[in-house]
Amino acid sequence: MDLAQEKKSFLSKFKEADSQDSLNSLKIEYLGKKGILSSLMSRLSNAPAEKKPKLGKSINEFKSLIEESINSSLEKIEQSALDEQLSKEAIDVTLPLSPDVGSYHPVSLIAQEISNYFKNKGYVLREGPEIESEYFNFSALNIPENHPARDMHDTFYFDDGNLLRTHTSPVQIRSMELESPPLKILCPGKVFRCDSDQTHTPMFHQVEGLVVDKDINFAHLKNEILEFIESFFKDNPKVRFRPSYFPFTEPSVEVDIQGKNGWLEIMGCGMVHPNVLKNVGLNSEVYSGFAFGMGIERMTMLRYQISDIRMLFENDLRFVTKG
């Protein structure tokens, strides 16, 4: 039997084999225990000694050829079978889904932003009760009974004489009663006034800042406010400080920013009134401080260009989830 002929015969059979089964039987036919290769090998021992090395090498080469050809064909067949199976498993990757997208209320978002800003400046967050006494809401803040300043606050009362706080300023008093200066606090929270129209709701949110120490002055207050405005209003608006009146600050300031259609009032502030310091047992000759307060809804409306404050409390899912 001529090796070259065997080779030729294998190649023609291999060409015919196009399935896993035919390839496997071809493998057995040639490489099996009783296969063609092993009979070639057994004949090798009868060959003359000087021809043995060359013949042996040729047989080994033939063996490699068989193995490689069959294995590579088998692999190809497996791959295409797998390809076919995977393509059957294909899904429509474009089907629409509706994930549960959580959301903060816009007012929460803005309260959070303002709180974070001041926290990073070293303010400590404080909160106080929403049901307050006349003392903390008014008297301690230098707003005596019957004073016309009380007209600025349309107050909700309870039968026992307590009230819903009309501003977050009572937290100033509570904080100063508990802690001694230096004091640097920020109080966000709900406040209440009997009022309802496009720019007023009976409940809204305020955030109030208070700094008390020795040598706190008007220049500090101005800088604190200017830096905040620069951070909050990205377009760096023109700012105006103008005199105003709050019984618990002296001097009192109203802060405006320049809007498209004129000045927009954004917050009130001032130097803490000596009577307020006196009410919490601080000597106003030694200590001074400033306080500022703003309506969170107002800031929210400016940020998101909302024109009716009542929208914020209708809790329409198509609206309050969009902040």
Binding site: Y123, K222, F241
Partner: peptide, 17 residues
Amino acid sequence: YDNLPSKRLKLLATSPE
């Protein structure tokens, strides 16, 4: 008010939130 200067406040408070 707008003609008065502004000055950075350097004060840290310590109490916890």
